[in-house]
Design a protein around this nucleic acid. Structure first.
Lengths: 122, 122
DNA sequence: GGATATTGACTACAACCGTAGATGATGCGA
DNA sequence: TCGCATCATCTACGGTTGTAGTCAATATCC
């Protein structure tokens, strides 16, 4: 449904998911930790996100307060789904197998995965 | 290391991973099932993949035989890793939890995940 | 050998992306 | 009230992507 969020736009979204609403300045400050962008760049990204309808703004005096219109969980779910479909034919276990073979699974992950599976079987 | 493979380019890569080497025509035929592209489009994508050094061509008379230079497994591994890093802070279990909560896990997946975990613990 | 078909190379072009400068409106302090 | 700071909007520009047309060389068929 909602349009594709680009890499740079995602950084801005993360800032808004962390806290909202925020002014353009707030977002720029928060984003500064990650990326060395000018304020203008952040504003451009905000305005592109606006036209994609994934954030909204409410006027507060002469500035705007931005807030996300899509939940991070929804976004993450749809991106994960896309990846699984694109690369693993929609099957989840090959993805995990892949990550396991790259030693990307921590002991903690393994424990948590066991929990998840236990939950699913009941 | 190797440059980013775009969505459309990936379709061509998949065709080459399925079988290689192939001529541009072979690839176009194979790709036709997925996408309604002209032969020229496929050739352009092949040439872009060439300049990204992810495929190579060997001359065969007056045409070329193309073959992938990166293994599908490697590509898939790096894309999976990227997603996990971008969206889940590098942790795998939240990804699976996410997919599980969307009912994306088939019974088969669950069984296979158990196998994988069993293998990891020993 | 000349017409025709095949094939890769070059060119095109609009949309989108990353990055940002310039401009114009508006509120605030002196 | 006048200048300055602040904010959003508009514009820009080179790079990438998706999609494809045209051109020139070569092989092939009659």
């Amino acid at each position: 449904m909602s349009e594709k969020i680009s890499e740079a736009e995602l950084v801005v979204m993360e800032a808004l998911w962390e806290q909202s609403p925020q002014t353009a300045n707030d977002v720029a400050d928060r984003v500064a930790a990650e990326r060395d962008w000018s304020l203008q760049t952040v504003k451009t990204l905000l305005s592109r996100l606006m036209s994609k309808d994934v954030i909204a703004a409410e006027q507060d005096g002469r500035r705007f307060l931005y807030r996300p219109m899509v939940a991070r969980d929804d976004y993450v779910a749809s991106e994960s789904g896309r990846l699984v479909n694109r690369l693993f034919g929609g099957r989840v276990s090959p993805l995990v197998a892949q990550l396991a073979s790259q030693d990307q699974l921590t002991a903690e992950d393994i424990a948590e995965l066991e929990e998840i599976l236990k939950g699913l079987k009941s």
